[in-house]
């Protein structure tokens, strides 16, 4: 009985979503007049946000990867918030989990896994670092890069039962990265006119030293996400001795 209800509910939900996303109308911004006055500069906005992103990203932010420009520049405040969500979750996990005695004893992994993961770890870390350092040039950025780094540490945790993250180092990295992000935002308030605004020269688009504050923020996010995710995994692992 419950299964039937569940199936009916799930298919109804699916149908609703299918209907809602199947007919995405292309709003014609040229023809229609919206009397919406921009409260900040008083102009009448009549511009589609996505097309603004597509046509102006390179000039306004200096980043070649438009996704990065949106994530770090246009909607940088959301990114600060999302990083904070992850930070809150990591803090909550470490606040609530407490060590209990008598976890299951885990068998040692075999030689190939142990030596192999040692061999692969530097490359995984390098890939992660590459992904977030080159966030403004190639696909990827702070979140994926940090996740790749965390999965490298996860590999070590899986193959060595006695491998633990150094708690102090992880929390210091996490804090320093978060402080860097928020502090750069405040510097934007001081040197430019608003929070998180770019105050560094944009440089030549396509080079690694370009796009102003984007690379700095993305490196901070990479370190932060990496340390947070690995600390969550580490905290969950701790019980099993």
């Amino acid at each position: 009985m419950r299964k039937v209800v569940a199936i009916i509910l799930a298919s109804a939900f699916f149908a609703v979503l299918l209907v809602s996303f199947s007919n995405i109308q292309q709003a014609d911004y040229g023809e229609k007049e919206y009397y919406y006055q921009n409260p900040i500069n008083g102009s009448y906005a009549n511009e589609s946000v996505p097309s603004h992103y597509i046509s102006n990203t390179k000039n306004e932010t200096g980043a070649v990867n438009a996704v990065t420009a949106i994530v770090v520049e246009y909607r940088g405040f959301d990114t600060l918030g999302e990083v904070t969500v992850l930070f809150t979750a990591a803090t909550g996990v470490s606040f609530l989990l407490y060590k209990t005695r008598g976890g299951k004893k885990r068998t040692e992994a075999n030689l190939i896994l142990k030596e192999g993961s040692k061999l692969v770890l530097p490359f995984i870390l390098l890939t992660g670092a590459y992904i977030f350092i080159h966030g403004h040039l190639t696909p990827g950025g702070g979140f994926p890069g940090g996740a790749v780094i965390a999965s490298g540490f996860l590999l070590m945790m899986l193959s060595y039962p006695k491998f633990f993250m150094k708690e102090r180092a992880v929390s210091v990295t996490e804090s320093m990265a978060g402080i860097t992000f928020a502090f750069i935002g405040l510097l934007g308030l001081v040197f430019a006119s608003s929070f998180l605004q770019n105050f560094l020269p944009l440089g030549d688009a396509g080079y690694i030293l370009s796009a102003g504050i984007i690379p700095i923020i993305y490196i901070a996010i990479g370190f932060k996400v990496g340390s947070e995710l690995s600390s969550i995994a580490d905290k969950l692992k701790e019980v099993q001795k």
């Binding site: 921009n38 409260p39 900040i40 500069n41 102009s43 906005a45 511009e47 946000v49 603004h52 992103y53 306004e60 520049e73 246009y74 909607r75 940088g76 405040f77 959301d78 934007g188 430019a192 006119s193 608003s194 929070f195 998180l196 605004q197 770019n198």
Partner: peptide
Amino acid sequence: GAIYETIAGFSPPVGIYLA
């Protein structure tokens, strides 16, 4: 009266703002 503050220096429909 009401305060509107842009974030990251992009005007409202494109950027975020606090109202």
